[in-house]
Design a protein around this nucleic acid. Structure first.
Length: 589
DNA sequence: GAGCACTGC
């Protein structure tokens, strides 16, 4: 293995960490920070090191690598912990975990006394959880100044800003191992991005030397259209005029077996063209890419606290994102990035950095979490975030929590709020569980909460053309007019009665991934509820493969209590509804 | 007419 750039910096890193509570390490892709930092500190004798990752796959794969490099069994000295899976033991000294898991651990032990070093890796991605952890670390190093070291590591994070946030802590820069990428801009913005991408890709394919092409588009729809058009065009090329091309779509709702196709090597003398969402920006790394085509757009979910609604919008990417995309062309050798927009737009219109998730999300869950930590000076409105959410967004969160009894009129967490915080659910759903537990329907509520957590279970995974051939959802329970929640409940119960048969999901057009996830969530929720449950939590069936005839009134009431912040009542003599609460708005079905 | 980017407890 070639020496990683970071290795030469070991002495400097150790010295800095010894002399400071917090160190920021800027290391580009390929610097080796994710695998090497923990080992350096381990060699230096730090007793237990936690390394957070924003993604589960990263926690698993990086820990596997480190275990291998140290020649130990995974789960012994080196291990990982992600939701539903803990591969650590009493011997574990280096522990990779998702940032969400570390937040859960900190609920049980706010001082995280188990660890002598905490490394927040990939902090530049600014995930909601990483941002909260950064705020917590700032406090924690004061409390544990004698025995805790914190490292914030990142690729392109603005080092000065983070350093300032952590009271001018030192910043170390470690070079990466990316090859140069030549950036080419369009003269003007294309009217149609699909056609522009198509034309650019064909141009590269015909004129440029070998090397795979990666195209960034916004969503499944665009990707499928582009793949189809591209296939047509490639087929129409003269035989032997250039090498073959094989085209892959790549997005999150693609079944895993189709996703992994991009990881197998291409046939000889064949160029691969991968049309992807921003899943290929960070989550999946495709080897062999030499050309990147960047549409300059991304679909981004954002929360609007005044309407209390999320929207999914196509927005312009940030400069950081554009550069991350370009970098995908330079992983194995020098590459080229074709930006389908003029450089002036890049410079004048693109934001420098992506708006952090914490400024795009509902904060009800995070605020409840922070409240439950009982921090001494608890004014959430003044919590020290690297980038503060808007006051409006924080006030919205507090109001929502108040409406579902999680906090009282003084803003203090209630006893029910404390129990809610234990559950890995959005507050409305945990409140529903609490209510259901008092009204004899906790087992049903658990199922509904699990199904809602998975969101995607009911969605057909196949593409539009395929959908026409198969009937999407046949003879599944429909909730019989009682609404989506009851339908979700009945579907899960039916699946339970097949003994969780995967074939049954496929036959009924349900996403196996989503259904299995719901099953895991239900199990986890049951374990947490076990302590306070007033009834058995197992699923009720009559053993005949049919729904039990029963009354869903209590369950529906519990849902109304949980969603007290989002109720509307039917307008008499009119179509439509009026939202409850101050300033009701008319909404249509 | 027809939805749904990506993560995570």
């Amino acid at each position: 293995m070639a020496t990683l750039p970071i290795v030469q910096y070991e002495e400097k890193i150790i010295e800095t960490v010894e002399n400071n509570s917090i160190t920021v390490i800027i290391g580009e892709t390929g610097s080796g920070k994710s695998t090497q930092l923990s080992q350096m500190l381990h060699r230096r004798g730090y007793s237990k090191i936690a390394v957070t990752q924003p993604r589960r796959v990263a926690a698993v794969s990086v820990s596997r690598r480190v275990a291998q490099e140290l020649g130990v069994q995974l789960g012994e000295e080196v291990g990982y912990a992600i939701r539903f899976e803990d591969r650590t033991s009493r011997n574990t000294r280096i522990k990779y975990l998702t940032d969400g898991v570390l937040l859960r651990e900190s609920l049980a032990d706010p001082e995280l006394n188990d660890y002598s070093v905490i490394i927040l890796d990939e902090a530049h991605e600014r995930s909601l959880n990483t941002d909260i952890l950064m705020g917590l670390m700032k406090r924690l190093v004061k409390i544990r100044s004698s025995n805790l070291k914190v490292l914030i590591t990142s690729a392109t994070l603005d080092g000065d800003k983070v350093s300032k946030f952590f009271r001018d802590c030192p910043v170390l820069n470690i070079p990466g191992k990316l090859y140069p990428v030549e950036v080419l801009y369009s003269k003007e913005r294309p009217v149609n991005y699909l056609d522009a991408a198509l034309k650019t890709a064909l141009d590269i394919h015909i004129r440029q030397p070998e090397g795979d092409i990666l195209i960034f588009m916004t969503g499944q729809d665009d990707i499928e259209k582009l793949v189809m058009k591209m296939e047509e065009k490639v087929r129409a090329l003269d035989e032997g005029s250039c090498m073959d091309a094989i085209i892959f779509p790549l997005h999150g709702s693609l079944p895993p077996e189709l996703q992994v196709r991009v990881f197998s090597p291409p046939p000889p003398n064949c160029r691969r063209i991968i049309v992807a969402t921003n899943i290929a920006e960070t989550s999946l790394t495709v080897d062999g890419v030499v050309y990147v085509i960047d549409s300059g757009y991304v679909k981004q979910r954002q929360y609007n606290p005044s309407s209390r609604m999320y929207s999914l919008d196509v927005v312009q990417i940030s400069k950081v994102q554009a550069n991350q995309r370009a970098g995908r062309a330079g992983r194995t050798r020098p590459g080229k990035c074709y930006r389908l927009y003029p450089s002036q737009i890049y410079h004048d219109e693109f934001l420098d950095v992506t708006v952090p998730e914490i400024q795009r999300s509902s904060l009800a869950g995070s605020v409840l979490y922070l409240k439950s930590l009982d921090l001494p000076d608890i004014d959430i409105l003044k919590f020290d975030f690297l980038d503060s959410p808007s006051p409006e967004s924080l006030r919205d969160a507090l109001k929502q929590l108040y409406l579902i009894d999680a906090i009282d009129e003084n803003g203090s967490i209630t006893s029910v709020g404390r129990k809610m915080a234990e559950l890995p659910l959005e507050p409305s759903l945990s409140r529903t569980l609490m209510e259901a537990n008092n009204h004899g329907c906790i087992t049903e509520a658990l199922t509904v909460a699990a199904m809602l957590s998975s969101e995607t279970a009911l969605l057909p995974g196949q593409s539009k053309t395929e959908k026409k051939r198969k009937r999407p959802i046949s003879n599944l329970p429909d909730g019989s007019g009682l609404g989506d929640h009851i339908q979700l409940l009945q579907i899960f119960e039916r699946w339970h009665q097949t003994d969780y048969d995967i074939g049954w999901c496929k036959d009924h057009g349900l996403q196996v991934r989503g259904m299995s996830f719901a099953r895991d969530v239900r199990k986890q929720l049951s374990q947490i509820m076990q302590k306070i449950a007033k009834e058995p939590l197992g699923i009720r069936t009559n053993g005949k493969g049919e729904e039990i005839r029963r009354d869903y009134r209590n369950l529906r009431k519990a849902l109304c209590v949980g969603y007290a912040n989002q109720l509307a009542e039917r307008k008499m003599h009119h179509n439509g509804y009026r939202t409850l609460g101050f300033q009701g708005q008319v909404v249509q079905e």
